[in-house]
Design a protein around this nucleic acid. Sequence first.
DNA 1: GTAAAATGTCACAAAGTTGAGACATTTTGA
DNA 2: TCAAAATGTCTCAACTTTGTGACATTTTAC
Lengths: 178, 178
Amino acid sequence: MESQQKILDSAIEVLNEDFSAPIDVIADKAGLSRRTLHRYFKDRTALIDACLLNMMQTWETAMLQACSNSDDPVKQLEGMLYAGIDCGVKYAFLHKLSKQQPTSTNSKYTSAREKWFQLIPQLQQKKIISDKIDAAWIRLLFIQMIHTTIEAYRSGDIAPNEIKRMAWYSFRRSIGMK
Amino acid sequence: MESQQKILDSAIEVLNEDFSAPIDVIADKAGLSRRTLHRYFKDRTALIDACLLNMMQTWETAMLQACSNSDDPVKQLEGMLYAGIDCGVKYAFLHKLSKQQPTSTNSKYTSAREKWFQLIPQLQQKKIISDKIDAAWIRLLFIQMIHTTIEAYRSGDIAPNEIKRMAWYSFRRSIGMK
DNA sequence: GTAAAATGTCACAAAGTTGAGACATTTTGA
DNA sequence: TCAAAATGTCTCAACTTTGTGACATTTTAC
């Protein structure tokens, strides 16, 4: 595998464990020297930015896939949740990041994310989900359901095969679907 | 106010914004010098540990209060959620912390937390909430609903007065209550 | 095999963080 | 008022992290 991708994968894994981890740790895990890492990524910021870009692309692809798999908006929403879960588990540290100061890539990322949530008002108009609930609240529920799932995986208290099912059950009910 | 408490309050506020913030920032916000801070807290670890202890006490008190306010387990659960929200908003950075390496105080904190979730099986036996859902999953939903709320406050997208109502609506439905 | 590309090693300086000593100054409380 | 406690200021040493230059070694591709 390309060194650049190795570093990226390593960074994703390490920063998930400890966001403030020294760069050495990332390089070690990638099986490369810190010096080499810096040949690919100018500095820490550039590395994190690259992770963000990596995630955007991955998620965007998975979301598109989910939408093209069905014409039923509900099925699309379900698929998007699953895509979000798969992606969220892999890139969990970026969620922590987005709570801090935003980066340039970050704004692109959130604006890309916004696009997908245009589905919500659409579902509200069709009375599939309650219009008593603020769309912004639903967006947060969606994101946080992914966080919940990440925690569920991490805790080991719950059978992994059950998690997605429960997540979809809880999410669709939390937004007022039957 | 006591300097110790001033520092504690400042730490809670600053670390919420940026968990890796240098100690100077905390001392500044407390209106004290870094030197003085170190007279009260041996090092960074001791300070964070103190924040943790502070939270445990606050939450425990608020939870007890919520339980004593009613005999109805559902009302108790609702009150506990609100207590958790109030507390969670104030001590949000500790949630991030608990995802990292646990401290000595941390284990006490989680074990204290466990006690409160004995309410869940009890509600499942009474068929008030679905017993198809794993109690561990419900515990995570509870915690994450607090995270959601924290985000909701922070985002500013949602009317603050609506947040608790929506949180309780979404939470009780997510665990299978009507 | 050989040249170019990639990587490793070592060394280094700049910067940031941390905790504490020494001593001056201020605040507190009786 | 006065002594004790609390705090500030200044300083310092130890440590960590970071990015980079110089040069050796290995790997790759032809």
